[in-house]
């Protein structure tokens, strides 16, 4: 049985892919969320700061405009701040060491058949599955 969530996932995925297409073909940039924001906060992307800020402005401002179309959007984010801080640090440090996250390595890397993008995606999926098992089924943390 195909579930509505899968169809919406595919539709939203197409929108994400078209956004990456637009950023690549018009601006000549790779749409990687961690790189766009990371180069900004560590100062290495100062020369292209305006373009990065414009992208982030769209990313942050548009979703809340669409939220009223839905009956209650909930991120279901954890209320355990200790877990969130540890997770945020791991995501921040990990994506910068790896030079990319789900959008850069996953969407833009796999579609270019980039060996680094494919390996990175395989590794973060592996680590994610393992951590999920440890934290949810063994640790009962999340």
């Amino acid at each position: 049985m195909i579930e509505p969530d899968w169809i919406w996932g595919f539709v939203g995925g197409l929108m994400i892919g078209l956004a990456a297409t637009l950023y690549l073909l018009v601006n000549g940039r790779i749409m990687g969320a961690s790189g766009i924001v990371g180069d900004l906060v560590d100062g290495s992307g100062r020369a292209t700061a305006a373009e990065r800020l414009a992208f982030l402005a769209g990313l942050i401002a548009v979703p809340p405009l669409l939220v009223p179309l839905y009956r209650g959007v909930d991120t279901h984010v954890s209320s355990n701040f200790g877990v969130l801080i540890a997770a945020g640090l791991l995501v921040g440090i990990g994506t910068r060491l790896a030079n990319g996250c789900t959008s850069g390595h996953g969407v833009c890397g796999i579609s270019r058949l980039s060996p680094r993008g494919i390996v990175a995606t395989a590794l973060y999926l592996l680590a994610g599955g393992l951590m999920m098992f440890l934290a949810r089924h063994l640790g009962g943390m999340i």
């Binding site: 995501v91 990990g94 060491l97 789900t102 995606t121």
Partner: peptide, 20 residues
Amino acid sequence: LVIGSLLFGAGWALAGFCPG
């Protein structure tokens, strides 16, 4: 790339969030 992706995946699972 290897260490970073492993750390990222662990954090991704803990919070359910990636940067985007």
